[in-house]
């Protein structure tokens, strides 16, 4: 009787998804991403038909439409894909490593660290120095991560869930304030990064995408391979150790991947909030707690959220410059609430 009840609860919650259906779900999500991305490239002041987009990608002929696709629309969508997947996967990894559902590169100050470092280097050396931003973004993200980790481990409880979140909030707020302060005194940089600091993919170039893509792709690849080890790590440090895992090593690798992904995403598209927090949660609510699946679902889902948010911002507000960081929250928050509520409703 008791066993039967347990099975029914399990089925009711819909958590017992088999690998086959997960793979199908991932494929469908990927199709959705391709469709949204194509639509995003097609939409704008000039509507460009899909065959023309395809022709521009495979055989650029120098026409105005082709140039529009290759120099403005496509780079913008690619930046959204890269930043979205990088932020979502870094959030998923952080939630596993810290055993904390509130962890994300935004809330724990890593995005703010990267953003502050980029703004600082722009102020000191002028905007438009190119690749160097990324290295400062990595450095800023890494420094913020270390700072939060050190602050979070003060006090008798050690690395408690709440301690880490408070430390993250403090560091994020402080660094964001510092960034604002720098920008108030430096009008030129402010003009250059005003949109970027809210999270924006407007005006990205192919060269900028190509600059960060290798780091993001590498980070995603390691993230995918981490999956099984993240499940072990999420059982807690002692249990992981008793299973033969060296938690310190895997935690260090994971944090390295987080810094790589979040730093790259911020240097490309600014500190887009919300994606890193909410996408892994949506993945977990739909497919369960297995990180071997959460990581790929987060990668595709994060890209989809940012592409759709950017498209929606352009369509609803009619502005090419509307920052995607604003729309991700406007779209993501209600969707997340709806999902969480409907799951909670069906579980009782």
């Amino acid at each position: 009787m008791n066993r039967r009840a347990g099975m029914d609860i399990a089925r009711h919650r819909g958590r017992v998804a088999h690998d086959g259906s997960r793979l199908l779900g991932l494929f469908l999500l990927l199709c959705l991403l391709v469709a949204a991305a194509s639509w995003s490239v097609a939409m704008g002041a000039t509507r460009i038909p899909l065959p023309t987009i395809w022709a521009a990608v495979v055989d650029l002929d120098g026409s105005r439409e082709h140039l529009l696709v290759m120099t403005i629309r496509l780079p913008r969508v690619l930046a959204a894909v890269l930043a979205g997947s990088a932020l979502a996967v870094s959030g998923a990894i952080m939630q596993a490593v810290t055993n904390n559902p509130l962890a994300s590169p935004g809330l724990l100050g890593i995005n703010a660290g990267a953003a502050f470092a980029v703004v600082l280097v722009m102020t000191l050396f002028g905007a438009g120095v190119g690749d160097i931003y990324m290295w400062f973004a990595f450095a800023g993200a890494g420094a913020a991560a270390l700072l939060v980790y050190a602050m979070g481990s003060f006090g008798p409880a050690g690395h408690s869930t709440i301690g880490l979140v408070i430390a993250g909030a403090v560091v994020a707020t402080f660094l964001t304030a510092l960034t604002s302060a720098v920008l108030i005194f430096d009008q030129n940089t402010l003009d250059a990064v005003r949109l970027w600091t809210a999270g924006s993919v407007s005006g990205r170039t192919m060269a900028q995408n190509a600059g960060v893509a290798p780091y993001i792709v590498a980070g995603l690849a390691v993230g995918l391979l981490l999956g099984r080890h993240l499940v072990t790590l999420s059982l807690g440090a002692e249990a992981a150790r008793s299973l033969g895992q060296n938690p310190a090593v895997w935690r260090a690798i994971s944090i390295g991947v987080v810094i790589l992904l979040a730093g790259s995403a911020v240097s490309l598209a600014g500190p887009i909030g919300f994606v890193g927090l909410v996408v892994p949660h949506i993945a977990r609510l739909t497919i369960g707690v297995d990180y071997r699946w959460i990581v790929p679902f987060s990668a595709v889902g994060g890209a989809l959220l940012v592409v759709v948010a950017d498209l929606a911002g352009r369509m609803i507000f009619g502005s090419q410059d509307f920052p995607v960081g604003v729309t991700t929250a406007l779209i993501g928050a209600p969707f997340f609430l709806w999902l969480a509520r409907s799951r909670a409703g069906s579980a009782t």
């Binding site: 399990a10 919650r13 958590r15 017992v16 055993n99 499940v231 072990t232 999420s234 059982l235 807690g236 299973l243 033969g244 895992q245 977990r284 369960g288 707690v289 297995d290």
Partner: peptide, 17 residues
């Protein structure tokens, strides 16, 4: 303590780590 939602099978498979 296991993460919420982890199934018995998921947990037992960790024993093969």
């Amino acid at each position: 303590v296991a993460p919420e939602g982890l199934t018995v099978r998921d947990l037992v498979q960790q024993g093969r780590y």
